[in-house]
C-alpha cells in the first residue's frame, strides 16, 4: 500500500497563494504605507532584504520598479536605493533598540518581467509571479512560492516550504526541514534536496531533462502521465519504493546503479527520454500516475 503525500496539490497552491496575500491586505490600523518608484531598463537587478514580513513580487509591463511597503513600527523604515539598474530594497532600522516584532515590514514590488531578483527573508513569506529573470531566494522559516517564473532559480530555505507552480528554466532548491512541490513545471533541470521534508513532483518531463530529487526522510512523490518518457533510478537506502510505472528494465546491469537498499531502475516509454533520479535515506518514494 502506498503512503500518499500528505498535502493534496490544490491545497498547497491555495495555501501558498492565500497566506501572503491575506497577510499583506490585513494590515493593522497603525500601519504606514510607503511607496517608491524607480525608472529602470528592461533587465534590472532588484535585491530585497527583509528580516520579517511578506515579500510579494510581480512582473508588469512598465520599465519601472514600484515598491510599496507597509510598516507598523516607527522604529523601522523602507530603505530603497537605486544604483544604475540595481535597486536595493531593505528594512532600515531607525533605532538601535528595535525588538524583533518591530522588524516586520510587508513589501509588494512590481518589476519588469526580465528582472533579476535576489531576495532574503527570514520569516514571513516570499511570493514571486511572472518574473522571467534569474533569481536567488533565501529564507529561514519563510515559505517560498514561485509561479510562472523562469531563468536560473536558486532557492534555499532552512525550514520554509517551497512551491514552484508552472516554473521553467533551471531550478535548484535546498532545504533542511521544508517541504517542496514542483507542479506543472516546464523545466529541463530540477534539483530538489531536503533533509526531512516531503517532495512532490508533478511536472513535465522534457526531452533530455534532468530531474533529481533527494531527501533523508519523508516522502518523495513523483507523478507521471502515460505520454511521459524517462529513465528512472529510485533508491531508498532504508525505506520503501512504491512504483506504478511499467518500466522496461535495463538489459544488462550497470555498475553505476547502486545495489543498496530498495532500488528501482528502468525506462518508461522511449522517445526523448528524461533522466529522473530519486534518492532517499530512509524515506518512502512513490511513483504514481497523475
Amino acid at each position: 500500500m502506498h503512503t500518499r503525500f500528505a498535502v493534496p496539490e490544490g491545497n498547497w497552491r491555495a495555501a501558498f497563494l492565500l497566506i501572503p496575500a491575506l497577510a499583506f491586505t490585513a494590515l493593522p490600523a497603525s500601519a504606514r504605507r510607503i511607496e517608491k518608484q524607480f525608472k529602470v531598463d528592461t533587465h534590472p537587478i532588484v535585491s530585497i532584504h527583509s528580516p520579517s514580513g511578506t515579500v510579494i513580487v510581480k512582473a508588469w509591463t512598465k520599465s519601472e520598479v514600484l515598491v510599496i511597503a507597509n510598516i507598523d513600527s516607527g522604529n523601522v523604515d523602507l530603505g530603497a536605493v537605486q544604483n544604475g539598474d540595481h535597486i536595493d530594497i531593505a528594512t532600515r532600522l531607525l533605532s538601535n533598540n528595535v525588538s524583533p516584532s518591530e522588524l516586520r515590514a510587508d513589501y509588494q514590488v512590481d518589476v519588469p518581467e526580465n528582472t533579476e531578483l535576489q531576495i532574503h527573508n527570514d520569516t514571513g513569506g516570499v511570493s514571486v509571479a511572472n518574473v522571467l529573470g534569474d533569481m536567488n531566494v533565501e529564507t529561514v522559516g519563510a515559505g517560498i512560492d514561485l509561479q510562472d517564473v523562469a531563468g536560473y532559480l536558486t532557492v534555499r530555505t532552512v525550514a520554509g516550504s517551497f512551491s514552484c507552480l508552472r516554473c521553467a528554466g533551471h531550478i535548484q532548491a535546498n532545504s533542511i526541514s521544508g517541504n517542496m512541490s514542483f507542479v506543472d513545471t516546464r523545466s529541463t533541470n530540477i534539483q530538489g534536496h531536503t533533509v526531512t521534508g516531503n517532495i512532490l513532483f508533478s511536472g513535465q518531463f522534457l526531452p533530455n531533462g534532468q530531474y533529481s530529487l533527494k531527501n533523508y526522510s519523508g516522502i518523495i512523490e513523483l507523478k507521471f502521465s502515460p505520454g511521459d518518457s524517462f529513465d528512472l533510478s529510485a533508491t531508498s537506502l532504508k525505506g520503501k519504493v512504491n512504483n506504478d510505472a511499467k518500466l522496461i528494465r535495463p538489459r544488462r546491469s550497470d555498475r553505476s546503479m547502486p545495489r543498496e537498499g530498495e532500488a528501482l531502475f528502468g525506462t518508461y516509454n522511449t522517445a526523448g527520454r528524461a533522466s529522473v533520479k530519486l534518492a532517499s535515506f530512509d524515506g518512502t518514494i512513490n511513483i504514481v500516475k497523475r
Partner: peptide, 27 residues
C-alpha cells in the same frame, strides 16, 4: 541574531542536521 524565532528555527534545524549526520555515520 536577535530574533528568537529565527534563532530557534536555526538551532532546531542544526539539531536535525546533527541527527542526520550521526545516523549516516552509523550507516
Amino acid at each position: 541574531g536577535a530574533d528568537p524565532l529565527v534563532a530557534a528555527a536555526l538551532h532546531k534545524n542544526l539539531a536535525i542536521v546533527d541527527n542526520y549526520i550521526s545516523l549516516c555515520e552509523k550507516s
